[in-house]
Each structure stands twice: as C-alpha cells, then as structure tokens.
Simulated scan of single mutants.
Amino acid sequence: MKLLSFLIFPLTLALLPTLVQANDAINVATYIEPPFADKVNGKFVGRNIRLSKLIAKKLNKKVNFITCPMARCILMMQSGQADMIVSVLKTDEREEILTYIEPGINFQKQPISFFTLHTNKVEINSFEDLKSLIIGQVRGARYFEKFDNNNELTKVKITTRSQMIKMLLKGRIDVFIAREESIRPLIDKYNYQKLRIAQYQYLTPVTGYIAISKNSYLQQDIQKFSSIIKQIKDSGELDKVYYKKL
C-alpha cells in the first residue's frame, strides 16, 4: 500500500500543472460572423471578441479563440472542448448542453431577412411563400422558432455564410436566410447589388446570450459570470465595448 501511494503521489503532481493551466484559460468557440467575430490580418476582431476579452480580464483568466463553423462550435460546447460561446439564442435543445448566463448581453433588433437574386422571379411576401423554395441556412444556426421547427420547408444546410452567398449567385438555391449586417462584409459591392431582400422579414427582436458548456470547469463560476454581465450592463461598459466600431 505504501508503494502504491508513493507511485500515485508523483503522478498526481505531474498532472497538476496541466490542470492548473487548463483552468487558467477560457476556450471560446468562435464562429466567424462579422460584425460579431472575424479574423483580419491574423487577428480576431469584433463584438464577441472584445466582450470575451473583457470578461476574461475580469475573471483574471486568459482567453483562447477557437474558430469553428456554428455546427462544430455547438458540438465542441457539448463535449467540453470549448468552455464558452458568445451571442447565441436560447433554445430548449441547446439548454440540454449549455448553461445560459443571465442577463442576456444583447437585444438583436436587426431583422432576419431572406435574400434572393434580382434576376429571380421570386416573391416572398409571407412565410407561406417560402414553402416552394430551396432555402439556404447556416448549419447549426438558429433563427426563429417558426422557421427552425418547420418540416415543410426545403432547407439546405451550408457550412458558412460565404458559401451560402456563392450558392445563391450560382443558382443552386433560391434564397438564403441571414441578417443583412452579417452579409454585407462578406461580399463585394458588385455582387451585393445582385441580391434582393424579400418583402417578408422576421422583425421580432431576439436576445443573445453568453453560454457555458455543461462539461466545462467554468460551471463553478456561473454566478461570477452573471454578476459581471449585470455589472457591465448597469455601468454602460457593455454597450461601450460591444457596440463600438471596429
């Protein structure tokens, strides 16, 4: 027994630095979606990036940004490979694997739009008009309940918004769903003029949250996260950091 204890103790010490190092950083699952997150000249920029850095600083932790398409980001959060994700919608499905930090960080007022081409003779004046169309959406993204849960629509799940734009321009889909502010930075002026935003849009504002993986060591700090968000919202620091221009 003494020999066993002697062997276990050095092993524990050998593992300890790794554990301390892991608990010293926040791994943020980062989906590229300007103006929320982007990578410019090798550096991460955007609203979610600035907010993540601010929170990490207040927790006295480092921050690592892990780029991933939305679907993979969610899988990484589920497994615990990533600790945190920023500005995500709350759904029953996601609540099984994520702890949402209250209060929410933003109130998204930009409409969710449906983009088609000027050359397409497609009129989308109501939700019902979508049922005859092939609709591009980002794999793993959530938009609004009526759209997300509708099984009558023909939806094509695409990895990135850039790919979605290319598929529309090539005529491989009839329309795609997105916010205009997330599409404009991804396309040049010439090609943007080829796009047309449909009359029908989803106008109800939605709340974005910071969420923590239920398999993350940060579960022990949920109350700290909540207190930080409340404090920076009440002080105006959140708006100053989150909404300033890049």
Rank of each mutant, 00 (worst) to 15 (best):
L3F: 06
L3A: 09
L4V: 07
L4K: 12
S5W: 08
F6P: 03
F6Q: 05
F6C: 04
L7T: 13
I8V: 13
I8G: 01
P10C: 11
A14P: 06
A14G: 10
L16G: 08
L16R: 02
L16S: 05
Q21T: 05
A22F: 12
N23R: 00
N23C: 06
N23E: 13
A25E: 15
I26R: 04
V28Y: 01
A29R: 00
A29E: 04
T30C: 04
T30L: 03
E33G: 09
P34A: 15
V40M: 08
K43F: 06
K43S: 11
F44Q: 07
V45M: 15
I49Y: 01
I55R: 05
A56Q: 05
K61L: 15
K62M: 11
K62C: 11
N64L: 03
F65I: 02
F65C: 03
I66F: 00
T67Q: 01
C68N: 06
M70G: 00
M70S: 05
R72T: 02
I74H: 07
L75F: 09
L75W: 06
S79H: 06
A82H: 03
D83C: 04
D83Y: 01
M84H: 05
I85S: 02
I85P: 01
V86A: 07
V86P: 00
S87L: 08
V88L: 10
K90W: 10
K90G: 08
R94H: 09
E95S: 15
I97C: 14
L98P: 08
L98D: 11
Y100T: 13
G104C: 15
G104W: 15
N106P: 12
F107K: 15
Q108K: 11
I112W: 07
S113E: 15
S113M: 14
F114T: 02
F114D: 00
F115T: 00
T116E: 00
N120S: 12
V122T: 09
I124A: 09
I124E: 11
N125C: 09
E128F: 13
E128Y: 12
S132W: 11
S132R: 11
G136E: 06
G136L: 06
G136K: 05
Q137V: 02
Q137Y: 06
V138I: 14
E145K: 14
E145N: 14
K146D: 12
N151T: 13
N151I: 14
V156M: 12
V156R: 13
K157V: 08
K157P: 10
I158N: 03
R161A: 09
K166Q: 12
M167A: 10
M167S: 07
L169C: 10
K170A: 15
R172T: 15
R172M: 14
V175T: 13
I177L: 07
I183F: 02
P185G: 08
L186K: 09
I187R: 04
I187A: 03
D188V: 08
D188G: 00
D188W: 00
K189E: 00
K189L: 09
N191A: 07
Y192M: 11
Q193D: 09
I197P: 07
I197N: 03
Q199R: 06
Y200Q: 06
V206Y: 04
Y209L: 06
Y209K: 03
Y217K: 07
Q219F: 11
I222E: 04
S226I: 07
I228H: 01
I229G: 03
K230I: 08
K230G: 03
I232T: 04
D234H: 10
G236V: 12
E237L: 10
D239Q: 15
D239V: 10
D239P: 08
D239G: 15
K240R: 14
K240W: 13
K245W: 05
